[in-house]
Amino acid sequence: MTDFKELIKKQKYSVFIVILFLLFPLISPSDYITHVMVLIFLFAAMATAWNVIGGYGAQVSWCHATFFAIGAYTSFLLFLRFNISPIISIFAAMIMSFILAMIVGYPSFRLRGVYFSLATIAFAEIVKTLLLYFTDFTGGANGLMLPYKGASLMSLQFKTEIPYYYISFVVLALLIFVTWKFEKSKLGYFLKAIKEDEDAAESLGIKAYKVKLTAFALSAVMISIVGPIYAFNISYIDPIGIGHLDLSIKIGTIAIIGGVATLWGPLLGAIIIIPLSEITNALLGSTRGGASTAIYGLILILVIIFKPEGLISLFDKFKGRKKDKKLKVR
């Protein structure tokens, strides 16, 4: 509880924003706007999960969409076949993701450099191809539809977007809280040390390989929580839509544009990217669907060249100046 008080004290502005977010559905003009907010929360949550390994560890993962898809498929299949509530199957999804993250991370983290990124792509392609291939089990390219079985919390189905709004808000808050705990944990400090200088960290007795693997597994488990929520919200999943490399890139891009290795960067990134892609999609229609993706590709390039610490750093400067002034007054 003291941790929580400290968090509130340190993040005054954030608490204000949180209250604003909580009241939003009351003033939301339409279900569509609320849905966009749900998407912002869910993508922010995914980017937050990515940030744990991709940001704090600078180990770029391109298979986070796959863990997301594993969460979505696990919950869908258990619900459709055995009528198991997604609230329970989320835990099954987390276990699945943990095991698979270990399998991918084990061979690739023993090597430095780009091998991890390459391995994640290979893993993502394998899972996507298998989801497409085992048609009887997964519905193949046609995907899986979720019939409406009446509003209830246990089946995560509701008449309006508002319950999803609060659920996704809670999920985002939970993942940010986990990241905050992680940032302050031994694991977080070790990971940051490795990111700065792997040789130096190892000479101090940090087992770089173990630390990265643990952080990756944590990150994978975190994102697999978001999968079921998203899947039940849009009530349709298919391998190309949710297990594709493009989605992994989108998740990473959101975190990077906002600011890697920061607590609030991923949320900022989602606030920028999600409305942007909604607007370009609405303006250009699905025939020229490349527009929004091209724009975030361009933003990604520009951010890496000109502002690698992300747009959140603009706020830091503002804060920093204020602190300087205070010091001068004293």
């Binding site: 600078a58 770029v60 391109w62 450099g113 780009v114 990124s117 493009d246 890139i249 990473g252 891009t253 990077i256 025939t287 020229r288 669907g289 490349g290 527009a291 993706t293 091209a294 975030y296 590709g297 361009l298 933003i299 990604l300 390039i301 890496i304 060249i305 690698p308």
Partner: peptide
Amino acid sequence: DTAYILLTVGLSIFLQNVVQLIWGA
């Protein structure tokens, strides 16, 4: 490494989608 990975990935989705924008899918 990380900057290169992200930059070239950004470049790849940019090229892909600019082409899609011009000539469609």
